[in-house]
């Protein structure tokens, strides 16, 4: 079946029209639960990519329509942009978007020049536009030399516009800890110290990883194993004594009732990029010393975390750490 070339533009338009409601759904679908929204977005994106591939196949193989690479280029680029800017939710920062789009732009250029034929397909219309003297070529030449500088001018104008947003901060989220700290007049060497409440049923030190058998168990029953008893006491600190949940949230996801008053917002322990990347002693340092003791490289020291050593005893700090790992199901980092 052959269809008129002019109609081929209809398919991308349909795809974009379909993408918009799906993107809106993905954006709001989580209703505050970013995880689910994120995964919906991922599923939709995968679906869209497969759909786009199928569409391409349909147009090329079944309908026999050849779309020149020069036309494919902006279309693919726009698809990447929509996927990363609109569908991927919550929105990624501009710096990351710029990086991703940079990769996509280069990749599409490589795609257009992969083989001798595809390069001809891509460059031939440009050569015609630059060299030929017939009316069509002239028209596209004038249009190009108006549109391209125009786009650059618009971009320059946008960049020069004064913005009233807060400036970008390259925060070091995990600054290097000191070699040792002094908590309640006791020296804790962060490289070697161990959590004294990481104990198994036999009362011995529980190796990291072995606590997985306690994940999902109820720590609040009377005959709970020793480890879970520590978890419970840590939980009491988290929800009671210290009230960590006000900022770090009931689910330890950094969305406590106070969290939205802070800038930057409190750490999300449920994220695989926070406590699961750190040693228990690192977390101990952060809890005990809080924002005021952040190291030099953690400039601009933007943290409202109080130094909890002033309010809790050492044991409570260690226990709340046990609780945080147990609740999120992550393991602290170890080197052995």
């Amino acid at each position: 079946m052959k269809i008129n070339h002019r109609f081929s533009i209809i398919f991308p338009i349909i795809a974009v029209i379909l993408a918009i409601p799906m993107a809106v759904w993905a954006g709001g679908g989580g209703g505050g639960q970013f995880y689910s929204a994120g995964y919906y977005a991922l599923v939709i994106e995968t679906g869209l990519v497969i759909g786009a591939i199928f569409l391409g196949w349909l147009i090329k193989e079944k309908m026999g329509i050849h779309i020149p690479k020069l036309i494919q280029f902006p279309f693919l680029w726009a698809m990447c942009y929509v996927a990363l800017r609109v569908i991927l939710q919550p929105p990624i920062p501009f710096s990351l978007l710029a990086m991703y789009m940079g990769v996509c732009t280069i990749a599409i250029l490589l795609y257009c020049s992969l083989t001798v034929d595809s390069w001809k397909d891509f460059s031939h219309p440009i050569a015609v536009m630059l060299r030929e003297d017939h009316a069509k070529a002239k028209l596209s030449r004038y249009a190009t030399f108006l549109i391209v500088p125009g786009l650059i001018a618009a971009q320059t104008y946008n960049q020069m516009l004064p913005s009233f947003g807060e400036p970008i901060e390259l925060r070091t989220v995990h600054p290097a800890p000191p070699a040792s700290i002094n908590v309640h007049k006791k020296l804790v060497t962060l490289q070697t110290a161990e959590n004294p409440f990481r104990i198994g049923d036999d009362g011995e030190y529980l190796k990291v990883g072995d606590e997985s058998k306690y994940f999902g168990q109820n720590a609040w029953v009377d005959d709970a194993p020793k480890f879970l008893q520590q978890v419970k006491e840590g939980g009491i600190v988290f929800f009671g004594t210290a009230g960590c949940f006000f900022c770090h949230g009931d689910n330890l996801d950094g969305k406590g009732p106070f969290s939205f008053a802070f800038n930057p917002i409190p750490a999300n322990f449920a994220d695989p990029g926070t406590i699961s990347q750190l040693q228990e002693t690192f977390v101990f340092w952060r809890v005990a010393k809080g924002g005021p003791d952040l190291s030099r490289e953690a400039f601009p020291w933007a943290s409202a975390m109080p130094p909890w050593e002033k309010h809790l005893v050492t044991n409570e700090i260690w226990k709340v750490i046990i609780f945080e790992y147990w609740h999120t199901g992550f393991f602290p980092r170890t080197w052995e």
Partner: peptide
Amino acid sequence: VMTPAELKAMGGAQHP
């Protein structure tokens, strides 16, 4: 690398 506004919009230092 992000502005504090972007950080808030994202809901944490890490993107889900």
